[in-house]
Write a protein that binds this DNA or RNA. Structure first.
Length: 608
RNA sequence: GCCGGCGUAGCUCAGGGGUAGAGCAGCUGAUUCGUAAUCAGCAGGCCGUGGGUUCGAUUCCCACCGCCGGCUCCA
């Protein structure tokens, strides 16, 4: 598990119910942190029993348990060791061995841990300033540790040794590689089981599997990190774009489109060359250097600079379905979540300084509105401050960060601060949503930028005729459309609402005798704007239904003798319910209405 | 990029130093059937790529590519 809940490309489950101390079956109040930390020590002991020469680095708790970074000189821990380690841990836990704290001077500790190279490094590095250090011992195993721990190993609750992964001393790939052994630990067995069930659920929802099963997209060796959209996936993608386009239009945004490859000079001027180069693709033509755009702002700025702007034009809201390329290390690619090229619903708002707050305020409303439509009701807001790698004066950073905070405060929107997580050109607000299995995802963002307007000498004519510098706001509601679709696929496990479903209706003839009628119905549905497919495969109805059901098709139009004779249709909903013998017009109108309102409902009033 | 694992038919997966198997999907035929898999037959693979070891490699070794899980990074 990663330490931070908003990270994507992976996810972190938050177990709210475990936020604080909790009584165990022993009736004691136990601190979960101490419990997990203690479990790490017990695991270390179990590992040492298996590999007496194991070298231990750090073993902290995580959000779902703990891990320990280990090196086995001349060997490695294998998957087959995990059950052994777990057994060892169970034995130690059963022994109810007390955790005994002691202190010694740093010099003594250096001698004491002489054979543990990482403990020595820790004492010489991180702990160099300490006079004394604390140790914890259980059952003959002593570790350097500041604690606290539970009283004895019997208080550790339910745990399991989960998996093994690579890591480095101090997390730096230049340092020595270590093995990280992850463990899960919860107060009770029920909670451990619940977590494991949830992980199983998450695996089943994996958008890469959904995409394959529903024939939405694929990946190929020939283009690692680049998605290939299939017809059904692209229908989804285009439907999403048309949705967000409508939302933008109704908020006064004008759409533009700018080139994907632009002169390197532009990227020097924008600061991307200095601050973002390692993520950029470069090319050349006629011996002139170009870069493939990793962001859309410079293109938008060129559009703004074309012509003179009056204060009356502001705020000028431009937006672009910008397809950007960003080089990513091969090891981080992950389905639609982490690509090397993706499409942003990327807006750039040029406004007067006094308009910033109002723009932010209405953007917050916009974001909440859209997320709700997708069933993301639980939104967390973060303000990210100046990162190390950045440009601009401190005062400007401070005032723009304050502008963000004050806009949120005036709206009464609660937020948390993420120090040093802003963009290189300005601070930002990030919007996180929680999906239905409690995973957090970062989606939208709005960023204040005083820097680009300066670099590109943007201006507008003020009321008094003087030239003023506008503020640039960068904003995205969905972020990466590809990634958003991946998240949403996992949210609904491929069962898209009618308005998004690539195939809205599957027309199933009961026997071949209805195939002609089925073709008529197909034409009628298509004419009515319903995305429909015909199944005249000669399979039995059961099989046709099964196929449509596995494809998560919202509506199955069943056409048998009865319907053909009465010239009506029967609808089986994805939910299993039926709306029998209605007119094609009623069906088209109903699906149309539900789609127009982006409803999640399959049918307005379910038959009883 | 780094650490570890994996790569066999369109998909899911068995197998294993003597040259490959299942289920589903596909094709053909029969069946014409009312709410989650009709039956039978056929076809389908340079066992990721390139080297090496060997009489012989898909199997063992090495390198590369890709994928998966992590580290780091990130939309």
């Amino acid at each position: 598990m990663r330490r931070d809940i908003w990270q994507w490309g992976s996810f972190t489950l938050q177990y709210i119910s475990f936020a604080g101390p909790k009584p165990t079956k022993e009736g004691r109040r136990m601190d979960l942190h101490a419990m997990r930390h203690s479990a790490a020590h017990v695991m270390a002991q179990a590992i040492r029993e298996l590999y007496p020469n194991a070298q231990f680095a750090f073993g902290p708790e995580t959000e779902t348990g703990f891990y320990y970074d280990v090196k086995i000189p001349g060997g490695a821990i294998g998957n087959e060791d995990l059950p052994k380690i777990e057994k060892g841990m169970q034995r130690i836990a059963k022994g109810r061995h007390p955790f005994v704290r002691s202190e010694m001077s740093r010099d003594e500790a250096l001698k004491y841990f002489g054979s543990q190279e990482f403990k020595v490094k820790a004492l010489e590095g991180l702990l160099a300033g300490e006079k004394t250090v604390s140790l914890y011992e259980q059952n003959g195993f002593t570790d350097l540790c500041k604690g606290p721990h539970v009283e004895h190993t019997g208080q550790i609750g339910a745990f399991s040794v989960d998996r093994i992964a690579g890591s480095y001393w101090l997390g730096d790939s230049k340092n020595e590689p270590l093995q990280r052994v992850y463990g899960l630990c919860f107060p009770t067995m029920d909670e451990l089981k619940e977590y494991k069930t949830m992980m199983e659920e998450a695996r089943k929802r994996d958008h890469r599997e959904v995409g394959k099963k529903l024939d939405l997209f694929s990946f190929h060796e020939e283009g690692p990190g680049f998605v290939f959209w299939h017809p059904k996936g692209l229908t989804l993608f285009n439907t999403l774009i048309s949705f967000i386009r409508d939302e933008n239009d109704s908020r006064g945004s004008r759409e533009i489109k700018t080139p994907e490859i632009l002169s390197v000079d532009l990227w020097h001027r924008s600061g991307h060359y200095d601050n973002f180069r390692e993520h950029m693709y470069f090319t050349s033509a006629e011996e002139k250097p170009y870069a493939v755009k990793p962001m859309n702002c410079p293109g938008s700025i060129l559009v703004y600079k074309e012509g003179l702007h009056s204060f009356r034009d502001l705020p000028l809201r431009l937006m672009e379905m910008g397809h950007v390329h960003r080089f990513e290390l091969s090891g981080v690619l992950h389905g639609l979540f982490r690509l090397r090229a993706f499409t942003q619903d990327d807006g750039h708002i040029y406004c007067a300084p006094e308009q910033v707050e109002g723009e932010i305020s209405s953007f917050v409303d916009y974001v909440f509105h859209v997320y709700k439509i997708f069933g993301f009701e639980d939104v967390t807001v973060f303000v990210s401050t100046r990162p190390e790698h950045s440009m601009g004066a401190d005062e400007v950073w401070e005032s723009s960060t304050n502008a963000l905070k004050s806009a949120l405060e005036k709206k009464g929107v609660a937020y948390k601060v993420k120090e040093g997580e802003g963009a290189f050109y300005g601070p930002k607000i990030e919007f996180n949503v929680k999906d239905c299995i409690k995973r957090n995802w970062q989606l939208g963002t709005i960023q204040v930028d005083f820097s680009m307007p300066e670099r590109f000498e943007l201006d507008y004519v003020h009321t008094d005729g003087s030239r003023r510098r506008p503020v640039l706001l960068h904003r995205a509601v969905l972020g990466s459309l590809e990634r958003f679709l991946g998240i949403y696929m996992e949210q609904v496990v491929g069962a898209f609402p009618p308005w998004l479903a690539p195939v809205q209706a599957a027309i199933l003839s009961v026997t071949d005798n209805q195939n002609e009628y089925a073709k008529e119905i197909l034409a009628a549905l298509k004419a009515g704007g319903v995305r429909a497919e015909l199944d005249v495969s000669g399979e039995r109805l059961n099989k046709k239904i099964r196929n449509a059901q596995l494809a998560k098709t919202p509506y199955m139009i069943i056409l048998g003798e009865k319907e053909a004779a009465a010239r009506n249709i029967s609808v089986r909903l994805r939910s299993g319910e039926n709306v029998n013998e209605i007119s094609t017009e009623t069906f088209v109108r109903t699906v149309g209405d539900l789609s127009a309102s982006r409803s999640n409902v399959l049918w307005p009033v379910l038959p009883s």
